[in-house]
């Protein structure tokens, strides 16, 4: 909003996780492994990777929301009416980006639930990894589990579209992101 020139750069950076396969990201882990063993062993080590992976979705979604409203004028109006930054954030910015924030969180959840490569490399027992090992052990029950997982995400997306139906300002743009996420999900599982 404040730095229009930075937009092109940010847009490029946010699609990088798309262009670089997860396995390349993971390869990087081995470079830093000797220095960050304590971190990679902790349960929180997946967070930075998932932040990077979900960046394209969260950025797109929130950017679309920002474009739909004239946030600059709204912030100016709020400030001239005596609201400080925190109050403006709470009563003006967040409520007007509600749709975008909800869809960004859902998309992130979908990405994370479908991610296998990084979790496998870091030896973290996430759902996709469990699905893989369980299917190997009990093929029939495993496929049922996979089907259930797929249904759950579908339900999540239906819930998302219901939640955001009332305000459809940024709906079209994240419908595209939604499709992309769905695809990502399929290739992962």
């Amino acid at each position: 909003m404040r730095l229009p020139k930075a937009r092109a750069l940010i847009e490029f950076v946010t699609v990088l996780p798309y262009m670089i396969p997860a396995i390349a990201l993971v390869a990087g882990i081995f470079v830093i492994k000797p220095h960050a063993r304590w971190f990679l062993n902790s349960d929180f080590s997946l967070i930075p990777f998932y932040v990077v992976l979900s960046l394209p979705f969260t950025y797109r979604s929130i950017d679309a929301g920002l474009r739909a409203i004239d946030l600059r004028t709204l912030v100016d109006a709020s400030r001239s009416l005596g609201a400080g930054w925190l109050y403006t954030l709470r009563t003006v910015i967040v409520p007007n980006l509600r749709t975008s924030i909800i869809s960004a969180s859902f998309l992130t959840a979908a990405v994370v639930v479908g991610e296998f490569t990084i979790a496998d490399t870091l030896l973290k027992e996430t759902l996709p990894r469990f699905q893989a090992t369980f299917t190997a052990r009990e093929p029939q029950a495993g496929y049922l589990l996979n089907l259930l997982a797929l249904l759950t995400t579908t339900l999540l997306f239906i819930l998302l579209s219901v939640l955001t139906r009332k305000r459809d300002s940024s709906r079209r743009s994240f419908a595209a992101a939604l499709l992309a996420a769905e695809k990502h999900q399929e290739t992962a599982s």
Binding site: D70, T73, A77, R79, G82
Partner: peptide, 16 residues
């Protein structure tokens, strides 16, 4: 801005 006591009307679309 928020410590001044000004009333401002903008060009358009400034209502929350």
């Amino acid at each position: 801005a928020h410590k001044r006591n000004m009333g401002m009307v903008f060009q358009s679309y400034s209502l929350f």
